[in-house]
Design a protein around this nucleic acid. Structure first.
Lengths: 209, 209
DNA sequence: GTCTATAATTCGATAGAC
DNA sequence: GTCTATCGAATTATAGAC
């Protein structure tokens, strides 16, 4: 029971008091999250994941069956969004930005999903379900019209920040401070979520260019 | 009216009167753009690209050397951003949104780059260079302060729309009409580019944790 | 210029010894 | 539970005949 102590992986917490099997599975999942987030679904190989976890590749197959199930297990996480029911209506945008920043910087599970979503339809649908699940009730409570559009616009701004800052790592986006993001983006989300519909201008489109 | 309909065919079509070599190269590049955009860099195989172009896979290697160079050639395109120097300052946001929508819907070269950027650092740096090149002079002309932040924020909103609508294909984002996107997003870009810096509120947030 | 054949890797997945 | 060995398939890339 002791010769497994050399494989301690401090990346994922609370691997202190487990049976060997559970400890191994936890180490695999931690390495899988890292690899999937860094390399994407295709380039993240089972062999590399197993090597990171100091575990035989065959064990990964034994515990998770195949690569697809391993990814599903690695991307399985509870978002535990805070209940925004009692947030003052004027603070919705700000609270939402802060919440997402917190979630992204907590661990890499969200980035795993985002990175994989680009080339994997299952992951994309899962991501969409998450945003719909979180934003829909909020919007339904706040705005009677254009609910689907509002959800799409808010999602685009939130994911756009995550994309530029954490995935593509654009230097100007990385250089943004947390406060800057909140102060700039909160008004945008506020308007997307509860602002008036913009007046459609069916006549004009491109004024004399 | 119907100003948007002028979709000038640039690089890919017009395979009417070429020498065999140029014709096959053009067919390969067209198929490569399609495959890279649809499947991503890893899953897009040279075999599949060659099959789409009704060409032997060996020809792809002969003309482009290797897969990396093929991608570079497929993603090589001149953006030809219109000169925004004489656009009224109040229309900058609107013109910018329209321009990007036009560019994305013209062909798939931009989506190829975006999709690949997620798992390929070279592509990500290229994307960043494009946005910097386009937005920097514009911002430098319009705003004296927070120029890097403004570029990052505008990029995030623009790329966020492209991500949700064309890459992830979120149903609510796909359902947005062109007019809706313009009317909602133009004010956002307008504020990011030339709006006042938000007043920082250093007191609250979490300074006293 | 074009295509066949194949080398050289690498991957996911399996079988079975201990 | 763990690990060695390996299969079968797929990939990029090369060599060379026609």
């Amino acid at each position: 029971m002791e010769h497994q102590a050399r494989h301690v992986n401090t990346c994922w917490p609370t691997i202190v008091d487990m049976k060997n099997a559970e400890k191994t599975k936890a180490a695999i999942l931690a390495a899988a999250r890292e690899r999937f987030a860094t390399d994407g679904y295709e380039r993240a190989t089972i062999r590399a994941i197993a090597a990171d976890a100091n575990i035989d590749p065959a064990m990964v197959m034994r515990y998770f069956g195949n690569k697809e199930k391993l990814f599903t297990a690695a991307a399985e996480f509870n978002l535990k969004f805070p209940d925004l029911a009692d947030v003052p209506i004027d603070d919705i945008g700000r609270v939402l930005v802060q919440h997402f920043l917190d979630r992204w910087e907590a661990d890499e599970t969200f980035l795993v999903l985002l990175r994989t979503s680009v080339t994997n339809r299952t992951a994309a649908e899962r991501m969409q379900a998450i945003f719909a699940q979180q934003l829909q009730p909020l919007i339904a409570r706040l705005s009677p019209n254009s609910q689907r559009s509002r959800a799409a616009l808010a999602s685009s701004q939130i994911l756009g920040i995550a994309l530029c800052r954490y995935v593509l790592e654009f230097p100007p986006a990385v250089a943004l401070t947390r406060t800057e993001i909140i102060e700039w983006v909160a008004p945008t989300l506020q308007r997307y979520l509860i602002g008036d519909e913009p007046k459609s201008e069916p006549t004009i489109e491109s004024t004399a260019t």
